[in-house]
Computed example of a mutant assay.
Amino acid sequence: MPRSPWYITRTDDALTLSRRLPARFDLAAETTLPGGDPLRLAHQIRQDMWRALQSLRGFAPAVEIAAAGEGLRVRAGGQVAGQVPGNAAGRIAEVLDSPANRARWLRHAGFRPDTNRFESGATVKNAHKIAAEIDKTDESAP
């Protein structure tokens, strides 16, 4: 079975999904979400961010999700090999602030208001299966 091309780094209260190690945020935007499975959220956010910035040469997406009070703090962005356009962080912020995106991410992440906000259904054993399921769609599709 092929290995997922994404690195998943976990700490006690945070999860980082990145294309390269160590994850680097040359550009980033932040938001908060009420909860859900952090790995599923990270993959969904990464896909939408990639769609918005796929024309940015040398872009390697990264998403960090950390517990923050009653919800989750999301930092999305990544590493850029080259010049960063002035509007790139704004484009990421638009992706993060889109009500349609946020609703879809929370549905996909299984958010229920009565559950723990930072529990992931993914384990080290099945993370590649979840990533493969999420990555079934082509990233370069509009």
Rank of each mutant, 00 (worst) to 15 (best):
E94Q: 14
R75D: 05
F118S: 02
A132E: 14
I45N: 03
Q54D: 09
G86M: 04
K129S: 14
R10H: 06
I130D: 07
A67P: 05
R117V: 15
R102D: 00
T16Q: 04
E139H: 15
H108I: 02
V95M: 13
V84A: 03
I8Y: 07
N101I: 03
D135S: 13
E94R: 15
R51F: 05
K129P: 03
Q79S: 12
A81Y: 03
L39Q: 14
P5A: 09
G110C: 13
G90H: 04
S120I: 08
G90T: 09
A28E: 03
A109V: 07
D26S: 05
G36Q: 00
L106P: 06
N126Q: 08
P85N: 00
G58W: 03
S98I: 09
G36S: 09
M49H: 01
I130G: 08
V84S: 02
E94G: 10
D135P: 00
A141P: 10
Q47N: 13
A62W: 05
A52C: 08
E70W: 01
R57Y: 02
S18M: 09
N116E: 13
Q54F: 07
L106G: 06
R104S: 14
P99D: 01
G121T: 14
A52K: 09
T16K: 00
P113H: 11
T9I: 13
Y7I: 15
G71K: 00
L27T: 04
S120E: 10
D135L: 07
R10S: 11
G86W: 03
P2T: 15
N116H: 12
F59I: 01
L41F: 05
R46S: 12
E139S: 11
G58A: 08
V124W: 03
G77W: 05
Y7G: 09
R112D: 13
G69N: 07
E64K: 02
W105D: 04
V63T: 06
E119T: 12
I130A: 05
N116D: 14
R112K: 14
E133H: 12
